[in-house]
Each structure stands twice: as structure tokens, then as C-alpha cells.
């Protein structure tokens, strides 16, 4: 069980840092500062961060920034990155054109 209010109190308010403008998710142009600020608004998980800021939701699906976002959240929450649950993986693993999928009838020979 995670007590969100207690955790927010523990980590204290958001404090600006000089590298807050640093781009972390390049597909969706999300900065370090946005991610750090979101943590102080109660966004503690990668899933929520994806929903809130779209980090890791672009063409590369977080392959580049997933680990980086995780470590930023962890450092803001003052926990080890291992305590931040990785985001889920969704098909398709590589982007595919709608017309190609539309031809797929569920078998091998269609």
C-alpha cells in the first residue's frame, strides 16, 4: 500500500534545477523538469507518467527514455530505480501501417 499524501510530504515540494529544460523523451519532447514536477503532483509510476506527459509513448515506445524516466522518478521519490515498476509493453513492437494490418486475417497465408 502506498500512502500518496504521506509520500508527497516526505519528498517535499518541487524545487527547480538548472537542467530542468533537458529533453528526456525525444519522441514526445518531455523535459526532465516536467517529469520531476509531475512526481510532486502525485505521479509516482511510469504508467501514470506516460498518461500524464506522454513520455515513452512515441514511435520508439520508450526504448530510449524508459530507463531515464525511471531513474528521474526514483531520484525524485528518493528510492532506488528498482522500486519504480517498469512500464508495460504493447503490441505492435514496431509501428506498422494500418493497411498492412488490415490485410491480416489472423492466419499465415492470407
Amino acid at each position: 500500500m502506498v500512502d500518496i499524501q504521506a509520500k508527497l510530504k516526505e519528498i517535499g515540494p518541487f524545487v527547480e534545477e538548472p537542467d530542468d529544460d533537458l529533453l528526456v523523451c525525444r519522441c514526445e519532447e518531455v523535459t526532465k523538469g516536467q517529469i520531476r514536477k509531475a512526481v510532486h503532483e502525485g505521479i509516482f509510476t511510469l504508467e501514470e507518467m506516460r498518461r500524464y506527459l506522454r513520455s515513452g509513448m512515441g514511435l520508439c515506445q520508450g526504448q530510449t527514455c524508459g530507463k531515464l524516466v525511471k531513474s528521474i522518478i526514483a531520484s525524485e521519490l528518493k528510492v532506488s530505480p528498482a522500486e519504480v515498476v517498469p512500464a508495460s509493453s504493447r503490441a505492435p513492437m514496431r509501428p506498422i501501417e494500418m493497411c498492412i494490418l488490415a490485410e491480416d486475417g489472423g492466419g499465415c497465408d492470407e
Binding site: 509513448m57 514511435l59 515506445q61 504493447r90 505492435p92 509501428p95 506498422i96 501501417e97 494500418m98 494490418l101
Partner: peptide, 8 residues
């Protein structure tokens, strides 16, 4: 038709 699906 040419739009790519990134996630389901």
C-alpha cells in the same frame, strides 16, 4: 491507410 499503429 498509411498511418502507422504504434500501440494497442
Amino acid at each position: 491507410k498509411d498511418a502507422k499503429i504504434v500501440r494497442s
